[in-house]
Nucleic acid binder design. Structure first.
Length: 567
RNA sequence: UGUCCGAUGGUGUAGUGGUAGCACAGCAGAUUUUGGUUCUGUUAGCCCAGGUUCGAACCCUGGUCGGAUAACCA
């Protein structure tokens, strides 16, 4: 697929606050070049919110000639898995980015341990025997200071001994932890002797059973940044209150001073964005998989038919700032359509077929008509489509009693069959229940290709497939997974699951022009007047399966709905 | 209730003491062999109150509202 250059429109964009910081750091010589990192925990699949972070971290590095590391924040073995590691790598690459180096926080466990020993020796860390509950109690509240642990003043020697024995596996989970010795009365709760290490007797997906003590996020993250000489450590807003601690470790350990900057995470209307909830949707089978096309995961969007370009452009368009935001889903779709419109080949397919017999067309005749592959791209060329006496059109394209300004087919009304002929509806055939089952039309042989030599105009052009040549296929039509702009906003006693849209997936048979049977998995098309579709992973030539990525903008049906609403 | 962060059209995002701009969405029109695309026009905004200043979205003070934060998660 061609990838038009979408970057030209970003050239003159004003700087965001991160770019300002970086340009200043470069200008003042604080850094010669920048190094960012994308640090996911491998405990789930990446979602569109991560895409924002990826585009930011990799994009910033690209823009300023720096590099970006991929680092898995794998400090909690019970939640993590290699399945997630692999999916994360695939998603980043699919988005179009390549990391300079691949690291794991677990690579640093030995170094982190040594630094913990150093902190103990400096009397800046101690082993605490309090229970989880006691620790919670003694932490105080936002208005009251906490209380020092009775174990806070253990000797350096005792702490060293205890910590070594923690590592050696002498204690049960919860028996002991290592804490930093800072200030139990600090106004920032994160500075009230934060926990550095806890005991977890679990198999780690990389280090196996080598360790039974694991560093906490706060103790691991900044030091990992520092070890890699990360210059700009970019994370979301909720880590803002962690920054003093991030800086504290760097200062006490006297290591490379990485700096943390926070931005507002992405929120999308009609979507949930927490890994916990997405995991729940998968585990409880509300969707079929992490890459279900209705999921806001990167793999879900990929399977749905989104292009990496459209997602990157979206991330670029929404900008980055520090205020909370909720992005309108339509902006994502705009970005998608903008790209697909340029690159997707046009094809004809009928979702809800209505048979049309052209009474004055020769019985056994078949014609090959020329059709443009993409009016937006002359290089896309043309194709032939077969035409015959019997065709199918869309049920929506005929009305027996049409309203005003209905440009499509109606009794006595003439329309253009795209790339074919003008036809006029002469007769409506119904079954015994009164359902319209067939139309009898006449065609104007002089209008071959879609133009009449007498210059007469028709207002409507509709798509069609030849009955004799059409290929049956499965169409998967998606709607929003959730009702309501914010699915997390629920009444008492309800959960976001109560906002699930029961009609988010509709599977139906459809008819395709034959060229579509030759598609390859993930090929993207515009089915004219219907929307953008992409060949699903389940697609085979024998049984084509297409996902509707999104509909086309449709000012007609919108107008219709409004006028119906008035009635 | 402490600390921290934030507040510009419906939604995002610029503007850093001198005419509030851009995108999406909306609306209206033109073009169109997709009721698509494209093009044109248009509706709509500085949280409030004081202060500094010739001049404030921007600086100061005080409020208000929203968010984060009190896991042995990240």
């Amino acid at each position: 697929m061609d990838t038009p250059n979408l970057s030209d429109k970003t050239e003159k964009k004003p700087l965001n606050f991160l770019e300002e910081i970086i340009e200043n750091d470069l200008k003042t010589g604080k850094y010669k070049s920048i190094l960012t990192r994308f640090p996911p925990e491998p405990n789930g699949y990446l979602h569109i919110g991560h895409a924002k972070s990826i585009c930011l971290n990799f994009g910033l590095a690209q823009k300023y000639g720096g590099k970006t590391n991929l680092r898995f924040d794998d400090t909690n073995p019970v939640k993590e898995d290699v399945e997630y590691v692999n999916s994360i790598k695939e998603d980043i690459q699919w988005l179009g980015f390549q990391w300079a180096a691949e690291y794991y926080a677990s690579d640093y466990f030995e170094q982190l341990y040594d630094w913990a020993v150093l902190l103990i020796k400096k009397d800046l860390a101690y082993v605490d025997d309090q229970t989880l509950e006691e620790i919670r109690q003694n932490r105080g509240t936002v208005t009251e200071p906490g209380k020092d642990s009775p174990f806070r003043n253990r000797s350096v020697e005792e702490n060293l001994d205890l910590f070594a024995r923690m590592r050696a596996g002498e204690f049960k989970e919860g028996d002991k932890i290592l804490r930093a010795k800072i200030d139990m009365a600090h106004s920032n709760m994160h500075m009230r002797d934060p926990i550095l290490y806890r005991i977890i007797h679990a198999e780690h997906h990389r280090t196996g059973d080598k360790w039974c003590i694991y560093p906490m996020y706060d103790y691991a993250h900044g030091q990992s940044d520092s070890l890699e000489n990360i210059t700009h450590s970019i994370c979301t807003l909720e880590f803002d209150v962690h920054r003093p601690l991030y800086d504290w470790f760097i200062e006490k350990l006297e290591i490379f001073p990485s700096h943390q900057y926070e931005f507002a995470r992405l929120n999308l209307t009609h979507t949930v964005m927490s890994k916990r909830k997405l995991l729940q949707l998968v585990k409880e089978n509300h969707v079929n998989s992490w890459d279900d096309p209705r999921m806001p995961t990167i793999s879900g969007f990929r399977r749905r038919g989104y292009t990496p370009e459209s997602i990157r452009n979206f991330c670029d368009t929404i900008g980055v700032a520090k205020r909370d935001n909720v992005i309108d889903y339509s902006l994502l779709e705009f970005s998608l359509r903008e790209h697909l419109n340029k690159v997707a080949l046009r094809r004809m397919a009928v979702l809800n077929p209505l048979k049309v017999v052209i009474t004055n067309y020769p019985d056994n005749q078949t014609e090959e008509l020329d059709a443009v592959n993409n009016p937006e791209d002359p290089n896309a060329g043309e194709r032939k489509v077969s035409f015959g006496k019997e065709i199918y059109i869309e049920q929506d394209d005929f009305m027996e009693n049409p309203p005003k300004k209905y440009f499509r087919l109606a009794p006595g009304q003439e329309v253009r069959l795209r790339y074919a002929y003008f036809i006029t509806c002469q007769e409506v055939i119904k079954d015994e229940k009164g359902n319209i089952i067939e139309l009898r039309c006449t065609y104007d042989p002089a209008s071959r290709g879609g133009n009449s030599p007498d210059g007469r105009k028709v207002k409507g052009t509709i798509h069609w497939v030849s009955a004799k040549h059409a290929v049956k296929a499965e169409a998967r039509l998606f709607d929003k997974l959730f009702n309501g702009i914010n699915p997390e906003e629920v009444e008492e006693g309800k959960t976001f699951l109560d906002n699930i849209n029961p009609d988010s997936l509709q599977i139906q048979e459809c008819l395709l022009e034959p060229a579509l049977a030759e598609a390859k998995v993930m090929d993207k098309f515009q089915f004219e007047r219907l929307g953008y579709f992409c060949a699903d992973y389940d697609f085979t030539a024998e049984k084509p399966v297409f996902n509707r990525t999104c509909t086309l903008k449709d000012s007609w049906s919108k107008e219709q709905k409004e006028s119906e609403a008035i009635k």
